[in-house]
């Protein structure tokens, strides 16, 4: 239920400006891959090309190939809406639907995809909330608004919402940057657990976090303001953090960066 992602020769644009240039990499299934790099290096942009959320922004477009196992996300007959069902996403700030209850938030994606029947929905919602380590905290108030939860709980609710539709891949865009340390720890535990089921890609600003949760790490960099972001190297996390191939990676890791 987890698939391998193979990216080759990917460019992404905002209007006329090239945001990321010529990225190729392989992301292994049932593992956590972390994207690190300075602000503006295009790691979030790249993440959003993996479920075709990039093109939601007016004027934005993508060139290149992204294969999920053997199927191209950007193939001519592919509907981006169907892609996003297969590749789930969790955002920087928790964004539960403010007008929906906790239950409806988790069930939202299921209902879109035509899952009907109260008992079936109940089962899947409970399973998703258990997988997101949230069930014990909210099972007595499923009908309360999701916006009433704490920040960390809201983010786990968003994760539950994303995994309820059984995606192949889970993308996380700095999921802990708006959270306190304890909530961050809860999310990191959750990531370690979820990687048994999903292919997980996480963008993070926090290098310790990348070292803690990921199996592989990709370092992105940018030559200067206005220049496109590039992939510098990708390797096993232990290798990146001990003896990287490229000098720029080492500079960044050791804090000797610009």
């Amino acid at each position: 239920m987890a698939k391998r992602i193979e990216v080759s020769g990917l460019h992404a644009y905002y209007g006329g400006t090239l945001a990321i240039e010529d990225i190729s990499m392989t992301i292994e299934p049932r593992s956590v891959t972390a994207f690190i790099g300075p602000s503006g290096c295009g790691k979030s942009t790249f993440l959003r090309t993996l479920n075709r959320m990039h093109e939601v922004i007016p004027g934005a477009r993508v060139e290149g190939k992204v294969l999920l196992d053997d199927d191209d996300l950007y193939g001519p007959s592919v509907d981006p809406v169907a892609v996003r069902r297969t590749v789930g996403m969790v955002f920087q700030r928790p964004n539960p639907f403010p007008t929906m209850s906790i239950y409806d938030n988790v069930a939202a994606g299921l209902k879109l995809n035509g899952v009907r029947g109260k008992s079936r929905l109940d089962d899947i919602v409970e399973e998703a909330l258990r997988d997101a380590n949230l069930w014990n905290e909210v099972n007595d108030r499923l009908d309360k608004p999701g916006a009433g939860l704490s920040g960390g709980q809201q983010q786990r609710l968003c994760i539950a919402r994303a995994i309820a539709v059984q995606p192949q891949v889970l993308l996380m865009d700095e999921p802990c940057s708006a959270l306190d340390p304890i909530s961050t720890l809860a999310i990191e535990d959750l990531i370690a657990k979820l990687k048994n089921q999903f292919t997980i890609v996480i963008v993070t600003h926090n290098m310790q976090q990348a070292a803690r949760v990921s199996d592989r790490t990709a370092f992105f960099n940018i030559a200067g303001t206005g220049k496109p972001g590039k992939l510098i190297e990708i390797d096993d996390t232990s290798k990146i953090f001990t003896k990287p191939e490229v000098q720029a990676t080492e500079d960044y890791i050791t804090g000797r960066f610009g």
Binding site: V81, A82, L112
Partner: peptide, 13 residues
């Protein structure tokens, strides 16, 4: 219109 990602059901479309 079918791809490996499945397709959006006709009713939704």
């Amino acid at each position: 219109m079918t791809s490996a990602f499945g397709s959006v059901s006709p009713a939704r479309r």
